[in-house]
Design a protein around this nucleic acid. Structure first.
Lengths: 188, 188
DNA sequence: GTCTATATTTCGATAGAC
DNA sequence: GTCTATCGAAATATAGAC
């Protein structure tokens, strides 16, 4: 890993831990150990755990948005781009770094932590709706489908696919769920 | 609430807390306070937190299975039964009492806790696949659709719908996602 | 900016009296 | 079966020296 400032190392370690263990399951001590930053140093740069989490979540949200936008902006038909996004390689068993946070009661209770999560998922729904609207205009999918509702269902399949995969201890249900929604889109 | 034995009160309180706060976020002390059962008493009836969680999760799983099975066994066409299940009244913002557990790293790490979760979601996929196969045989949905994959997508939409709703702080995305998958099923 | 010391609560449980 | 006492570790910081 490239050389990073103390602040950067703290944010990156917090990002990892939030993904692996959630907010409630992540302790300041664990962040210090993973980052190699001392107690005093950590509290010098950040007010505490919520402050660190805010920085980490905002960065993860921005990064996810950029990555997905790039993927959906590639050349190809609407269905090709959506298929490419749904089937892209993922560490399925780790779950979604953003969506997974919604299970945490302390994230949901704190608007400043919930908001970046909400914005990211809301943006994704909108972006997919745009692509689906293009597909409808090009006659790739039925004109009767509502792009916004269909896009929300697609995002939900991804988020729910992670849930099923983690329960099963296998990526298989995720893949099957994606096949299922693509089958429905193809025949609609 | 009806009079309950000490053991029952512990299990019921643990069920509630697991739903509200997850496994990592639920402490033995909180269980004692909610149930009104003392420390010594709790450790007399159960070995500890994992043991209590096993009892609570198993009960929630059995109850969910029975309730959904009853709903899907009602009279009506396949699409009517599926629509009834997807649109039934729910406390959407609480999320799924079973699916939500998959976000917890300690649940996933412990096979005896993960297994009832996996079995429940696996059973649900299978049960919905049966209903979809009936619908296909009756010509309600396209013969080209794979019932198993479609059922998995439907379950994923529910689980993902909870995620989107909790992020938004509103049931709306859940409802929209359900409308989206029903629209796809209707036009397929 | 970073370090070590200290502080208060809670976690998750065990021990042993009643 | 239930109660109170006790325990070692971890959570989440604050204080103050360097």
């Amino acid at each position: 890993m490239a050389v990073m400032s103390t602040s950067e190392r703290l944010i990156e370690s917090t990002r990892e831990l939030l993904w692996e263990r959630g907010y409630v399951g992540t302790s300041p001590k664990a962040i210090q150990q993973r980052s190699g930053v001392g107690q005093g140093s950590m509290y010098h740069h950040f007010d505490g755990k919520p402050d660190l989490a805010r920085a980490a979540i905002s960065r993860t949200a921005a990064q996810m948005r950029a990555q997905i936008d790039a993927q959906l902006s590639r050349p190809g038909t609407a269905m090709e781009r959506i298929t490419g996004y749904l089937r892209r390689e993922r560490d399925v068993l780790k779950g979604c770094a953003i969506g997974g946070l919604t299970q945490d009661p302390e994230i949901i209770a704190d608007d400043s932590l919930r908001q970046p999560v909400d914005e990211t998922l809301r943006w994704l729904r909108g972006r997919l709706a745009e692509v689906l609207a293009q597909g409808r205009d090009q006659g790739e999918i039925a004109a009767t489908l509502d792009p916004a509702a269909t896009a929300t269902a697609v995002v939900a399949v991804l988020q729910g696919g992670y849930v099923l995969a983690r329960a099963a201890g296998s990526a298989e249900p995720f893949t099957v769920a994606v096949d299922g929604i693509l089958g429905l889109l193809a025949s609609a």
